[in-house]
Structure formats: C-alpha cells, structure tokens
C-alpha cells in the first residue's frame, strides 16, 4: 500500500495572530491578525494611526506586545536567539535609523559586517543611485538620498524577509521605479517583503496581497484585484455636500450615490447609459458643475478610502 501523500504547506513568512499593543491605556493595535506569504509582497495599508508601523515594530522586536502571537519565518518572535533571527530579517524604518555624521559607504559596510553573508555595499549603493565614493556625510544628503541609504542598510544583509516602512516617501519618480525594480528582484530571489505605505501606486505595482488596517484591526485582505473588483462604476467631482436626494430618485434600481471623501461622488451599481443620463439630468436641473466624470473600475485608492476614509 502506498503511503499517503502529504502536502507540505510552507509556513508564512509572517504570521500575526490577535496582536494587541497598548500605549498607556490606548490600544494602538487591537487584535490584529494577518499572514504574509513566503516569497510574496504583502502591503499593509491604512490611515495614519491605524497601527501599521507599531505592528512592524513588534515584529522586528523593537516594541513588546500586550498579547498575541507573532512568528517570523516560522520562528516565534521574541523567543528565538535575537541575532539568529535578525540575521535573516532586514528592516527599513520609517523614521531615522542612520548615523548623521557617517558617510553612506562606510555605514553600509559596517552594517554588512554584522551579517553572515552580506551583499556588496558599493554595488548595492550604486544600484540604488547613491555614489559609493561620496565623502558627503549622511546628514548633508537630500531626503531622497537618505531614503536610499536606509534602503541599502535594510537590504545589505541579504535578508529572507524584509520590512519596508514607507520606503518611497521622499523619492522622485525615477528613484521609485528603481525601488520597484529592486523589490521585484528581491522577490525573484525568494525573499518575502512586508511593505507599509500610503502610496497606492506602490501597492498596485508591487503587492501580491493587501491587508487593510483600521483602528488596529485588519478589516479586509486580498489581492489588489480582489479588493478593486470587476464591477465598473461612475465617479465624478462636484460641490461639497451636495443634496443627492434628487439624484438618488432618478437612478435605476439598486443604484446609489455616496460622497466620500468630501466633494468626490461615486455611483454604485451598473455603469450604463441610463446612469450617465440621470447624472447629466441631475446636474442640469440643479446647476451642478461636475469634473473628472469617469466610468471604469475603481482605483485601489478609491476602495481603500471608501473602507477607511482618508489615507
């Protein structure tokens, strides 16, 4: 008799279960649960104060949790040998993290010396668009250049798992494209990436999975396609807080119109000519000028804003 075939399911790169973090009496993270699959990019998105950065800080050992479980690469965080787990995880922090008086290459070289199998610091800086030969101290670099150095120190240890907290803030479009290529390269080599960002363009271009966080909890998760959906809708911009009663009255069955955020209107239901006709008629009758009248799938930003309010 043949032995039964057992499917080996790889453990997720990050497993967070019922995580609670408190600042005094306030719960910054209130029972958050999510998984970041191995070899994929997982984006944590949500408004300021949602608990994204706090969650990353707990994952990388900078902040204790009040309760809950965190596992990185299959190892419970906080119980394993710190140096052992930290040598497999790279972190790009949202705030600070650099020695202001150091030069980029010497800092990245020093950080590389802490890891068992580091990348070449000069090559990495060069790939990120920072001149490895520069003698300018980090404090005199532009914000975008400092951001690239932060990215280099996060990646120089060739981590299996990388946390990138707001990695592209302050980067120009060229540097962001370079960063996107770098993340794709990491994933192609088998690394797992957890990305927190407010820039939905980064998420749409990079993320295999999105976890939407609000008030310290995960309220939705899925692929970008899952979240955006296939349904088309009509959106337009108009005056703030317009009276929508008349418009609702002329929309076809099951149609509705919502204003979110203020001045931005979205009509749910089928995006057929009847809806466009109803909107045009409502505008004409009420003297409303519209702008950016669009028919199509909602953007990820539209979806997230609808879920959590302003990003």
């Amino acid at each position: 008799m043949r032995p039964p075939i057992v499917a080996i399911v790889p453990s997720p790169a990050v497993l967070v279960r019922d995580l609670v973090v408190r600042y005094g009496s306030r719960e910054a993270v209130a029972g958050l649960s999510f998984e970041a699959p191995t070899g994929r990019v997982t984006a944590l998105v949500g408004p300021n104060g949602a608990g994204k950065s706090t969650t990353v800080e707990v994952c990388v050992g900078l902040r204790p949790a009040a309760s809950g479980t965190v596992e990185l690469l299959g190892i419970p965080a906080g119980t394993a040998d710190a140096a052992g787990l930290h040598s497999r995880v790279g972190v790009m922090l949202q705030d600070g993290g650099l020695y202001p008086s150091a030069r980029p290459l010497e800092l990245v070289t020093y950080i590389a010396s802490l890891y068992p199998h580091p990348d070449d610091p000069g090559r990495l800086l060069d790939a990120l668009g920072v001149d490895p030969g520069t003698r300018t101290p980090i404090r005199r670099l532009s914000g975008g250049e400092q951001q690239r150095v932060k990215c280099a120190v996060a990646l120089v240890g060739r981590p299996e798992l990388v946390f990138l907290d707001e990695p592209t803030s302050g980067l120009d479009s060229g540097a962001r494209r370079t960063f996107h290529d770098l993340v794709r390269g990491l994933v192609a080599e088998g690394a797992s990436v957890v990305l927190t960002t407010h820039l939905m363009d980064d998420v749409e271009r990079l993320a295999d999975q999105v976890v939407v966080i609000a008030d310290g909890r995960a309220i939705r998760s899925g692929t970008v396609a899952d979240l955006v959906g296939e349904e088309e809708s009509v959106s337009f911009r108009g005056p703030l807080h317009a009276d929508l009663t008349a418009l609702r009255a002329v929309l076809p069955d099951h149609g509705d119109v919502v204003e979110q955020p203020p001045g931005h209107y979205r009509v749910t239901g089928a995006a057929d000519p009847m809806v466009l006709s109803a909107i045009a008629a409502w505008c004409a009758q009420n003297g409303v000028r519209t702008a950016d009248l669009r028919v199509g799938r909602r953007s990820l930003e539209d979806v997230i804003v609808a879920l959590v309010g302003d990003l």
Binding site: L62, H86, L114, G157
Partner: peptide
C-alpha cells in the same frame, strides 16, 4: 533603533 533590528 535601527541597530536593534540587526544581528547586533
């Protein structure tokens, strides 16, 4: 803070 995330 950053050093706290490295093997050091």
């Amino acid at each position: 803070r950053f050093l706290g995330t490295t093997p050091l």
